[in-house]
Simulated scan of single mutants.
Amino acid sequence: MKKLGRNTWASIVVLLFGVVLFYVGTDGFRAFTAEAARVERLKADKPKFPQVTLEDSMGRAYPVSEFKGKYVFITFLYTSCGTVCPELEMNMGEVYKKLPERYLGKEIVFLSISFDPERDTPERLDKYKDMFGSDGETWRMARISDQAELDSLLKEFGVIVIPDGEGNFAHNSAFYLVDPEGKLADVMDYKKTGDATRKVLRILEEGEKR
């Protein structure tokens, strides 16, 4: 059997080292981008929705415990966004419309949260919700006026929001599902509305059988 030369062994060591780095950096090959890795960690950690006060499009203010005992299907947005946010909310509307009406407001509530509370007043959110078929009750649009509370929520749920200094934000987007105990149950690709609808429907149907 031919012995491997020093250069060959060196190449093998470098290759193995690279594989280990790739494994660690991608959470065990399950994720190939930083965003996917972030989502994998969130799913594993299942953070609890922090205590915040929401102010919705009707001007009502209430704690997040308003939704205790229900699933909450969440997006994060700002109404001045001209890129991903309209698509995000349109896709949220698709999931909303495909769920049986008997679940809406009783077993699950849809909630769009603005991370631009200074501009996204209740009046502005009220106009914005009409563009997507939000009824303001079973699908609410709200802001969190307290910046510390907002920052806490964004941090817990891994929502990255970077202002550009000109009134716009670079941010990641997804569907977030919070369970009746207030813990993050899942993070879903907002572009795959069919998958999200089937997943939520399955969860709600399983809840009915218990």
Rank of each mutant, 00 (worst) to 15 (best):
M1D: 01
K3P: 00
K3V: 08
L4A: 11
G5M: 12
R6A: 11
A10G: 10
A10M: 06
S11R: 12
V14F: 10
V14W: 02
F17E: 03
F17G: 13
G18K: 03
V20L: 09
V20E: 01
F22V: 11
Y23V: 07
T26C: 05
T26Y: 08
D27S: 11
G28H: 11
F29T: 05
F32T: 11
F32G: 10
F32E: 07
A34E: 14
A36V: 13
A37E: 10
A37P: 06
R38E: 14
R38N: 12
V39M: 11
R41W: 13
L42W: 10
K43Y: 07
K43R: 15
D45K: 15
F49R: 03
F49Y: 13
V52P: 00
T53E: 09
T53N: 05
L54W: 05
E55R: 11
D56L: 04
D56Q: 03
S57N: 14
M58R: 12
R60Q: 14
R60K: 12
A61T: 15
A61R: 15
A61I: 09
P63C: 05
V64R: 01
E66S: 01
K68N: 02
G69P: 05
V72N: 01
F73D: 00
F76Y: 14
F76I: 10
L77T: 06
L77P: 00
L77N: 06
Y78K: 05
Y78M: 03
Y78H: 05
T79M: 13
S80K: 10
C81H: 09
C81D: 12
C81E: 09
T83Q: 02
V84I: 13
P86R: 14
E87F: 09
M90N: 10
M92G: 08
G93C: 03
E94T: 08
Y96N: 05
K98C: 04
K98V: 08
L99V: 10
L99K: 01
P100H: 15
P100K: 09
E107A: 11
I108G: 00
V109A: 00
V109N: 05
L111I: 01
I113F: 04
F115A: 10
P117T: 03
D120I: 07
R124K: 08
R124W: 06
L125W: 08
K127N: 04
K127D: 03
Y128S: 03
D130S: 07
S134P: 07
D135I: 08
G136Y: 07
E137G: 01
E137D: 14
E137H: 12
R140M: 14
R140W: 09
I144G: 04
D146S: 05
D146Q: 08
Q147T: 07
E149I: 02
L150P: 09
S152K: 15
L153D: 09
L153W: 11
L153M: 12
L154R: 07
K155W: 10
K155V: 02
E156A: 15
V159K: 14
I160Y: 12
P163C: 08
A170Y: 15
S173M: 03
S173N: 08
A174S: 13
F175I: 05
Y176F: 14
L177R: 00
V178M: 04
D179H: 04
K183G: 01
D186W: 02
V187I: 04
V187D: 08
K192W: 06
K192G: 06
D195L: 15
T197D: 02
T197L: 04
R198D: 13
L201Q: 02
E205H: 03
E206P: 04
E206Q: 10
K209T: 09
